[in-house]
Design a binder for these strands. Structure first.
Lengths: 237, 237
DNA sequence: GTGCAGATAATTGTATACGATTTGACTTTA
DNA sequence: TAAAGTCAAATCGTATACAATTATCTGCAC
């Protein structure tokens, strides 16, 4: 069960208090796909893994359930969320709904320094793509999300930023479940295009590129209803 | 301290489990302004008020802090959130950002039955406006928010619906703090206008009306920085 | 009377304990 | 043998206990 939950224990800022530290470590593990959808996260196991009591483990799991990354079933336990195809569609619908607005907001406030920072992020992302190894893959996933989060941060609206953090994290789960071509490579180029449009203050183009970008990510998903695996279909092959 | 926390204990669906029930009751009390911003919510007090242990009270308060309705300060306790003017602006900026999109989504899916339901909600809202008494006032506040939540519900996106619930609840706090004319009366007419536009499938008009509506609510706020009340200005009256 | 220092009270942070629910295995019986 | 019933293990739900932190009060020096 914990074959995949080995190298957890994220660096941690050590300035946070117990439950938050665990929550952040678990979230990172989920977003970077070291923990797969459906994995059971029992309170005892989480607690002993981090050397804390069930109390704190439970608090962390509750927190993650508010973010949609963990689903807790009454009297049964917590599991890494396993978003349904419909849920996946809603997540991307939400992104299509808010990201153009965030981008517009960001475009109006962005400073040259921030633009430079975005470019750096893009370069780093490209570098990771060319590297090999699981660790690089994880970092790439994270970097790809960070681009969108950076835009939210630039928009200056903390509420939208937090919402985007949730959406990006949940998107990562969806891609882990339904993604086909493991290459989010095309995404990189699109990020570049958006930055270029931003540099030109061409907001409309930037928004359109963003919508296309989200559509591309979604197009790479296979969201056919494998409804509970039919109970029969699961064996007739 | 609890002079304003008397008639709590909301009806409750009795199908929920402990902490959620308390969370919902507290949220309702906050949104309906029976609990004012800044009110201290100590774990013991909340627990004994609902006849549960601190454990559950704490869980409920944590949950509310994720929604932004309660702020918990380390080692000091939980308080009904006291949004800063800047936070208030961000809340409304977020609403301007997402509500047109939600409205568009809703317009595409709305059924005649749902339109009728919206109309009914509007009538109920109007009825409450004409009534007198605190209880009617509370119900009016709730009904006014319910209009926006209903639209989110019609949009069919659970994620956006939950986000709107958070935004509407936090807006209620902001209005309680910074609202000037206690009359959100003008809002009623604007709700009606939006419904009418929806009936005509005139999405653009509906979105514009929505933006104006949000702007009007925000315009009724006095968001000047009363920075810590100056320590002198607070008493020279 | 003002300011500092230590003690005391109140409140949160975390761990542990116990009861309730679910799950899977084992036993019994037709 | 298959179905049903019963029991034991694991896990969650909640309460309580204790430790750590913060706020408040008291007393003393100045």
């Amino acid at each position: 069960m914990n074959s995949q939950a080995d190298a957890l224990q994220a660096p941690g800022d050590s300035t946070e208090n117990g439950a938050q530290q665990i929550r952040d470590a678990l979230r990172e593990a989920i977003v970077e796909r070291r923990l797969s959808p459906g994995t059971k996260l029992s309170e005892s196991d989480v607690g002993s893994l981090f050397n804390v009591s069930r109390t704190l483990a439970r608090a962390a799991l509750q927190a993650l359930s508010y973010e949609g990354l963990v689903s807790v079933e009454k009297n049964r336990g917590a599991f890494v969320a396993y978003p349904s195809p419909d849920e996946a569609r809603q997540i991307f619908a939400a992104r299509r709904l808010v990201e153009p607005g965030i981008l517009k907001s960001a475009a109006e406030r962005i400073t040259p320094a921030q633009l430079k920072h975005l470019r750096q992020l893009l370069i780093e992302e490209g570098r990771l793509m060319s590297e090999r190894g699981q660790s690089a893959r994880r970092a790439e996933i994270k970097a790809s999300g960070d681009f969108h989060l950076m835009l939210a941060s630039i928009s200056g609206n903390l509420i939208m930023q937090r919402f985007m953090e949730e959406l990006v994290a949940r998107s990562s789960l969806v891609i882990a479940l339904y993604g086909q071509s493991s290459a989010s490579s095309c995404g990189h180029a699109e990020h570049g295009g958006i930055i270029t449009a931003l540099e030109r203050k061409d907001i409309d183009t930037a928004c359109h590129l963003m919508l296309h970008h989200i559509a591309h990510i979604e197009a790479d998903l296979d969201l056919r209803e494998r409804k509970s695996f039919g109970l029969k279909e699961a064996f007739e092959r």
